[in-house]
Design a protein around this nucleic acid. Sequence first.
DNA 1: TTACCAGCTGTGATATTCCTGAGAGTTGGC
DNA 2: GCCAACTCTCAGGAATATCACAGCTGGTAA
Lengths: 229, 229
Amino acid sequence: MSDAKVLVVDDEPNIRDLLSASLKFAGYEVQTAINGKQAIEAAASWQPDIILLDVMLPDMNGFSITKKLRSMEVTTPVLFLTARDETQDKITGLTVGGDDYVTKPFSLDEILARIQAILRRSTTSDLQASVIKVGELEINEDAHEVSVNSQMVDLSPTEYQLLRYLAVNANRVLTKAQILDHVWEYDFNGEMGIVESYVSYLRKKLDPVSTTPLITTKRGVGYMIKAPS
Amino acid sequence: MSDAKVLVVDDEPNIRDLLSASLKFAGYEVQTAINGKQAIEAAASWQPDIILLDVMLPDMNGFSITKKLRSMEVTTPVLFLTARDETQDKITGLTVGGDDYVTKPFSLDEILARIQAILRRSTTSDLQASVIKVGELEINEDAHEVSVNSQMVDLSPTEYQLLRYLAVNANRVLTKAQILDHVWEYDFNGEMGIVESYVSYLRKKLDPVSTTPLITTKRGVGYMIKAPS
DNA sequence: TTACCAGCTGTGATATTCCTGAGAGTTGGC
DNA sequence: GCCAACTCTCAGGAATATCACAGCTGGTAA
């Protein structure tokens, strides 16, 4: 699912760079565009597998761009980026077809998850639910449901995101800074203590139903979920 | 029922794109035409399994087009798209045989359901009613009837559409934006709170006759109907 | 052993999301 | 032309989530 081609379209340089760097690190090939004109050109010539498209660009809005693309027989799926307080009429119609949208400010993990979901649906035509399994832990991404030892556990959105990030990176220690950068929205400016809090919440919910503690602390380094060998 | 061929005929580009994208995502093969001449050519040469035909086109109206097609021995079923204020006799004259019609503005879910219904009738000659079953819930698509625990429940059109969309996507969380884009007409530009209202209406009608709550809320994500495992 | 410091967790203030009843506006049947 | 059903908005309140803070715990190194 990696080495897919992603076209990032946003006029804000910091967002562009953030996405570009993260996606490259995640193994994607990335190109960027700063306005609608560039985006359409790049989409036509480079033929990306997915387009990350800011809804409000200086020259065109997301709708005009996708309309233009579709009229050129470019059927690349689009993941829209919209401001949280965008008026409804700008948002309606965005989730038709294989398209999806996320609101700014987003978290990196959310973007990566959405991209994966879209690519999975567009490349393979599998109708099977996508499930992450690590030992006794199971995360059903379609239903947003988590179970340990076949016991359902109810998690808040942030708890879910955190657990998912840890599970995807099982057997790898993640620093609190990494976790903060991936799970929390990019404009979050609180302390890293929040990560400790949420790890605590997760343990309180998960450990009572698991036979062995799930999340291990690497003192001075970070956290990790260890898969049984 | 998928990978059937659908010919979309409409002169408005945004409607054409909306339908094209959604149908492709639903697994259909799609071609488009922007006027009667193109439509007749495509219908004859490409031989689609169904034609979505706007009644009012710049060069010909739907009546002339179907007459022309039928005279060419093309018996492909047609789903007409008409304006809501179209005169009734014009419409009734059109929908002979296996044909059907929907009024603009339509909802995506409605179009998809109608297409499925027509294809089912024309390809397989089964006279069995198509029924969606999820746990205690049963939706008879032919009769538009809903029952829970064998108890009939009376729903308004919008309630029915919403429930159907949730049932078809059982075990998958649907965001309020997705629901709005699929169940409500494409030109609806109200708030997402309407989804909450209708979920509330549904629960008030369904829960009294069901042994377990049908629609679950995934806080911060959306709604889901969970099938018992 | 002791002192230190990273990590853990309970408390509470604030923010967000969701639910639902009430009512206004529309449509369609009779 | 009236009534009933339906659609949609709105706002108060309930439930839940987020985050900061501070005191506590326990590992670690001298």
